[in-house]
């Protein structure tokens, strides 16, 4: 995974498979504390303590199609390489929260990557799941809620190419507006 956007796309896949109906993705940048935090919170099936420990093991997966599960370990590696850490909190039946912290100015901190198209593909590629994307940069904030989008679309499919394109542009412009370096 080359950047944080790719990690987001990857990690939300876990939440989708955990049958989450609402996934909240936040990227919080605090230049004063020199921190960048990625939080993925879902209301999926949750995990017990044993499974949380397993999730960090690259040779563990709940899938049957293959024997390895690298999504979380790769994110953990990138976090640790940039003097950060990865924490998973989860409760069976309630959902899971994954938090990866990075030292923002660290040379090994992955770039944010192509957040605009990642966010729009995340929302349009999983039409039956709702997403809230929050990006905080110091005092500025941008929030995108797929429920609001669907409400406005009134039955127009969120997978429509024009809608996908619009969302990409909207995220791009709004993040640029609050000063995010994409």
């Amino acid at each position: 995974m080359r950047d944080i956007a790719m990690h987001i796309l990857d990690i939300i896949g876990n939440s989708v498979r955990a049958k989450a109906t609402l996934i909240e993705v936040s990227v919080i940048e605090k230049s004063k504390d020199d921190k960048l935090v990625l939080i993925v919170k879902d209301n999926g099936c949750g995990m017990d303590d044993k499974m949380i420990a397993n999730a960090l093991d690259p040779f563990f997966t709940s899938r049957k199609t293959r024997k390895v599960g690298l999504g979380i370990p790769l994110l953990q590696q990138n976090a640790q390489l940039s003097d950060g850490a990865l924490i998973i909190k989860s409760k069976i039946g309630e959902g899971t929260t994954l938090e990866a912290t990075f030292v923002r100015s660290h040379i090994d901190r992955p770039p944010l990557g192509d957040l605009p198209s990642t966010i729009s593909l995340m929302i349009s590629g999983n039409p039956s799941v709702e997403f809230v994307y929050t990006h905080v940069l110091d005092k500025e904030q941008f929030v995108l809620d797929s429920r609001e989008i669907k409400q406005i679309l009134e039955g127009v499919d969120i997978t429509q190419p024009n809608v996908v394109r619009f969302l990409t542009q909207m995220v791009d412009e709004n993040l640029t507006e609050i000063g995010v370096e994409l």
Binding site: I152, G155, V156, V163, F166, N174, E177
Partner: peptide, 21 residues
């Protein structure tokens, strides 16, 4: 400075989309 796109713009686009659909 160009205006940043908002959900309002999406509403406008929806009407065009609906007729096309």
């Amino acid at each position: 400075m160009a205006k940043v796109k908002t959900l309002e713009d999406l509403k406008k686009m929806r009407d065009q989309l609906q007729s096309r659909l």
